Amino acid sequence: MSRPVTAETPTGPMGVPDVVAALAGGDTVTPVWRNELGGLTFRLEGEAVRYVKWVAAGTPEIDLPGEAERLAWAQRWVTVPRVIEHGADDEGAWLVTAEVFGRSAVDPRWITEPATAAAGIGRGLRLMHDSLPVDQCPFDWSVEGRLVRADERIADGEGPTDWSPEYRHLELAKARACIGDPPEIDRLVVCHGDACVPNTLLHDDGAFAAHVDLGSLGMADRWADLAVAAWSTEWNYGPGYDGVLYEAYGIAPDPERIDYYRLLWDMA
């Protein structure tokens, strides 16, 4: 079974927040993305193309000021969107970035060429992990910090019915014990933090172009990214492409770490 879609391209009418309309001025505004937490992304097209991410006030899971900081830091070494401005008001927060050339790996072009796309995602993730300097990274995505979020979700009443089908058979106490006993770190890197398929952009020849949506970027074991990136190929392309991603990254699957970081992803 595949995991439910948690973000999607809008298919019907979608309201444009007042601040987005103001930022657009006379530019054409096109909704391009909506996630399950209510975050919206719009394309503003005029003399130049810009993208605006907007989230309603009171949505702590999406930290746009934090993403702006991470993008500004990471752009010294890797290709990510350039921050133009960001801000907040009583209604919500927004982040405006410049266009980055490339197609999302969930573009219809790549849905029909999943093996090429999965390989591009793997190579792009390896490039990020090799390029971003751990010793200069001020951001954290460690297991310890993520366990705090897992406990908050448990306290809010979340449990197995909220997890992916692969883990719904687990009892809550057993699952919490599992994520509380992480495997030894394989290689500490600066992780993307949400390396799912939609967040990689590819050139038309399948070469890696850029990463987007880096609101959780921080230091962690590389398997925290790898396990979920490969998992998301199944959600977006169907089964059988995780191995393509691992091979392109240059690593053999590690079943123990894959299982651990997928369960942690579900719970945290």
Rank of each mutant, 00 (worst) to 15 (best):
A115S: 14
D90P: 00
I121W: 03
R109H: 14
M128G: 10
I121H: 03
F101M: 09
E85Q: 15
H129Q: 06
E99Y: 14
V83K: 09
E85P: 02
A88L: 06
G92W: 02
A105Q: 06
T112I: 06
D130Y: 03
A115H: 05
R109Q: 11
S104C: 12
A93R: 12
T112R: 14
L95P: 08
R103G: 04
H86K: 03
S131N: 03
I121A: 11
R123D: 01
T97W: 03
D130K: 07
W94I: 08
F101R: 14
W94S: 07
P114H: 08
L95K: 09
G124M: 10
T112L: 14
I121S: 03
G122L: 01
G87W: 02
E113V: 10
G120T: 02
E113I: 01
V106E: 02
V96W: 05
E91C: 10
R123Q: 09
D90E: 14
R103C: 03
P108W: 07
A118C: 05
R109V: 11
T97G: 06
I84L: 15
A93H: 08
G92Y: 05
D130P: 03
T116G: 05
I111R: 15
G122K: 02
E91N: 14
G120D: 03
E113A: 15
R109F: 13
M128S: 09
A117C: 07
H129N: 06
V100P: 01
S104D: 07
G122V: 02
D90G: 12
A118N: 04
A93T: 10
T112S: 15
G120S: 06
I84A: 15
A88Y: 00
A93M: 11
H86D: 12
R103F: 10
G92S: 07
G122M: 02
H129V: 06
P108M: 05
V100L: 11
M128P: 00
D89H: 12
G120N: 04
A115N: 03
T116S: 13
A88C: 09
T116M: 13
S131Q: 06
I84H: 11
A105F: 07
E85C: 13
A93G: 11
G124K: 07
H86N: 13
R126V: 05
S131Y: 02
V100I: 12
D89P: 11
V106A: 06
P108I: 04
A117Q: 04
E85V: 10
G92T: 05
W110V: 02
A105K: 01
V83E: 10
L127H: 15
D130C: 07
E91F: 08
A88P: 00
I111M: 14
I84R: 14
I111L: 15
M128K: 00
L127D: 09
F101N: 12
P114M: 08
A117T: 04
D90A: 15
E113Q: 15
H129F: 05
A118K: 01
F101A: 15
W94E: 03
E91T: 15
P114W: 08
D89F: 12
V106Q: 06
E99M: 12
F101Y: 00
M128F: 14
E91P: 00
E85W: 04
R103D: 12
A93Y: 01
W94L: 06
G120V: 01
A115E: 15
D90H: 10
G102C: 08
I84M: 11
I84D: 13
A118R: 01
V106P: 04
D89W: 10
T97N: 10
